[in-house]
Design a protein around this nucleic acid. Structure first.
Lengths: 248, 248
DNA sequence: GCCACGCTTTGACGCGTGTCAAGCAAGCCT
DNA sequence: AGGCTTGCTTGACACGCGTCAAAGCGTGGC
């Protein structure tokens, strides 16, 4: 709730170059500024499912905004444990963690055929000096990412398996709805294992919990096809943990 | 490892106004710019142990840099579950999560008598336009916070109690050492419960695990006084999970 | 100085989730 | 079409951590 999703009418607006919900909308740029921005945003790049957009350790030069498709970002430790740190759909930004050390801090992998806009960070930074509202917007975006991460910490530190999964599904539903998709009938783009990695659970637990939700007729689960029959029931489960709506 | 701590010689440098390791140092400001910055930084504020620096939901106006003392930040859900999102010592910045919604997203509480510098965000933002290196530094700070949060996610999602506690102690040790304090002999400023909340464990588990470390003569634990007898043993425990060095 | 309270430690026990393993369904390749 | 791979489901069991409880220790207040 602390993070408001863009209202629907704003979704129709777009940059001339690509539709970057988060990037363009709240800024209120004039025509000239918009042109400057367009000049900086590079032609979009297409990725096939499974392809890496960037890898942890690679030099950082650009942020990437999802135009179409779906991504996961993940960090992994030396001994191979992998933690999915987020799932990213159209309009969302990836790569903010790379600024600090001038190299990417996580892997970004396309979970379906996708398209991204590349935003060369140096040039965005320079542009921010000329366009204060753009600079401010970038600070807000980074701050929002921090808020989101805190919600995930709350989830990982305090919630049980059922609560985590319910929070996850509701968050997904809400973000899809904000993009004009059905809120209660959608396809998961990620595997059970990836969901588990994000939620700090094993894939078997994810599977069992989904089955449990289905038994209670809260969901209909057909492989990756999810129908939310009683979203209120899920909401009741996470009612206490309200922070956990902005997971991504 | 991805986050390098400031080298020791840099620690002696300080702003004329207050010693903000993270804020001032890497920027490389000239004399005039330094003066501009000083003009913006407000007189420092003192807090007694237990006092709130800010609360979740309060209007956001400023960031705060710890001058002396020790803080925790935490988010809490409606039903009262509390998650400590970080511990903060001298030179570290708090409040970055407040930018996105113009209100603070967490509570900040002094764990001992402390002193902070207030940095009015609007004025810092304006100043950033005039001093590119300052602007860049702010982006880096925010990005570093995101990297840190990702490490915490890895810890909460993948590590066992012993690994979490070892990673926590090593991180604390390292940050203290970077500030010129003894690395292997220090006082915990927080309770077992607060450690547990940060690490996603119950206080009993924290206590038991500390006892276990002591039995193995890896530590000497006398209430809040910790002596690390065999830091290598702790390092070996977290060896695989290298990401987890930048927890804070 | 004493008492009361908060914090910590330690034990016994139970539960939730991880682990291991088997079987199934869907999709892909040849 | 057949066989392979990959991902998912489900069961049985184990174990780490949470829960509940009691007792010890320090500290601060009066």
């Amino acid at each position: 709730m602390t993070e408001q999703t863009p209202s629907l009418h704003t979704l129709k607006v777009s940059c001339s170059n690509c539709s970057l919900r988060e990037l363009c909308l709240p800024v209120g740029l004039n025509r000239e500024e918009m042109a400057q921005l367009d000049a900086v945003i590079r032609q979009s790049r297409r990725l096939k499912r499974g392809e890496y957009l960037f890898r942890s350790g690679e030099g950082f030069r650009s942020l990437y905004a999802v135009r179409t498709g779906f991504f996961k970002t993940c960090v992994s430790s030396q001994d191979g444990r992998e933690q999915v740190t987020g799932f990213h759909m159209s309009g969302e930004l990836m790569g903010l963690d790379g600024i600090s050390a001038s190299q990417h801090g996580c892997d970004a992998i396309a979970l379906e055929d996708s398209e991204v806009c590349e935003l060369p960070f140096n040039r965005m930074e320079t542009l921010g000096r000329d366009i204060p509202s753009l600079q401010h917007h970038f600070f807000r975006l980074m701050s929002r990412e921090i808020v989101r991460d805190q919600s995930v910490m709350l989830l990982l530190g305090n919630m049980k398996a059922e609560e985590r999964l319910a929070a996850f599904l509701l968050n997904l539903s809400q973000r899809l709805a904000a993009r004009g998709f059905a809120a209660n009938d959608f396809i998961l783009r990620m595997s059970r294992e990836e969901i588990g990695s994000f939620l700090g659970l094993k894939l078997e637990t994810v599977s069992r919990t989904l089955s449990k939700f289905q038994q209670q007729s809260w969901l209909k689960v057909d492989h990756k096809h999810i129908q939310m029959l009683q979203p209120e029931a899920l909401k009741a489960l996470v009612a206490g943990c309200s922070q956990a709506n902005s997971l991504r």
